[in-house]
């Protein structure tokens, strides 16, 4: 690991200033992903701005919703009473991720910003357009069983690894950021990017912008929710495919639905068409099967991930079944 400067501001402005003009600087909060990447030389910031002293870890009611501070730990959010009551899907998604230790360390903001687990991104000896623009995509013609089936480009077929973000995109969350040019709100669905020609950019954050909180509007999804994570071992593994499903049911009829997938795209993948289809339909396996088929319309596989074309819809069906079965 290279030498770097370390600063620990106590004021938000100082933190933002520290990054504003310095493209080689990074915020560090939990550090669970950044330190890992620095050890491997994948990221080499010259300055770390430790934001843990900023007062950004509150979880509170705000304007008909929940406001979760960017520095709230994954554990704190997953076990928070308000979260469990209002947004159980988020709690389920958080608990499905990582390990108890990592959830103690990892923050909400950091979780959103974690980098892909693509093998080629992680290994500096391999080509990767995300890590080193122009070097090529190792996965495209390589081992791509973990890779995207939606929204990829010929520059990058990596997937976003966060579980939490899959729930947040389903729940219509908004990301609050503060930067050199002031504060702004970014709808969660617009927070992460598709790779296009610039896969090095994971998100639409601008230089020096700091995530301060996430807002989640209150909704009817307090009961019939399920986060399904399919992985190769029972815990502590990244998803092959995951599904966040939230239903609002009235006598077996779907009043409202939210559906998003993880492990399938460069960003948490919201399934808007399938959601629309579900509304007004009976909550039956047949309905779910049709919704799953709609969800997969644009999916395209590579050499090793064709199984996702089957696992994806099957996981959607199962997640919806599980969500329906609750209560």
């Amino acid at each position: 690991m290279n030498q770097f400067q370390y600063v620990r501001p106590t004021k938000q402005k100082a933190a933002i200033d520290a990054l504003a003009k310095d493209t080689s600087a990074q915020f560090i909060a939990g550090g669970t992903n950044l330190v890992d990447l620095m050890k491997r030389g994948v990221m080499t910031p010259q300055k770390l701005v430790d934001i843990n002293k900023l007062p950004l870890n509150k979880i509170e009611k705000e304007n008909g919703g929940l406001r979760i501070g960017a520095l709230a730990s994954n554990k704190a959010v997953a076990e928070d009473k308000l979260v469990l009551e209002k947004q159980p899907l988020l709690a389920q998604a958080l608990v499905a991720g990582a390990s108890a230790q990592l959830r103690n360390m990892a923050t909400v903001g950091g979780n959103m910003l974690q980098r892909t687990r693509c093998y080629y991104f992680y290994d500096t000896a391999m080509p990767c357009n995300k890590r080193e623009p122009g070097s090529g995509c190792g996965a495209l013609e390589g081992i791509n069983r973990m890779h995207a089936i939606f929204g990829f480009s010929d520059k990058c077929i990596a997937v976003h690894p966060s579980d939490m973000s899959v729930a947040l995109v389903a729940l219509d969350a908004t990301v609050l950021v503060s930067g050199p040019r002031g504060d702004r709100r970014i709808p969660f669905a617009d927070f992460h990017r598709l790779p296009g020609d610039t896969p090095q950019k994971d998100t639409n954050l601008e230089q020096g912008e700091l995530i301060t909180a996430v807002d989640i509007p209150d909704g009817p999804f307090t009961k019939n929710v399920h986060y399904l994570k399919v992985r190769e071992r029972a815990s502590y593994a990244f998803a092959l495919v995951s599904v966040a499903a939230a239903l609002s049911l009235d006598n077996g009829t779907i009043k409202d639905a939210r559906l998003a997938m993880g492990g399938v795209a460069h960003k948490p993948w919201r399934l808007n068409e399938a959601e629309k289809f579900l509304v007004g339909k009976p909550a039956t396996e047949d309905t779910f099967r049709q919704a799953a088929a709609i969800a997969m319309r644009d999916a395209k596989a590579f050499k090793h991930n064709a199984y996702k074309l089957k696992l994806g819809p099957n996981s959607i069906i199962q997640a919806l079944k599980n969500a329906t079965a609750v209560g």
Binding site: Y119, D123, G142, S235, Y236, A237
Partner: peptide
């Protein structure tokens, strides 16, 4: 990855060994 001749899942996050929950 035979193009490069090296293992690509060369850590404990990607090379899975059983955990307690298994």
């Amino acid at each position: 990855d035979h193009r490069y001749g090296n293992f690509i899942n060369h850590d404990l996050a990607e090379y899975h060994v059983p955990v307690n929950a298994d």
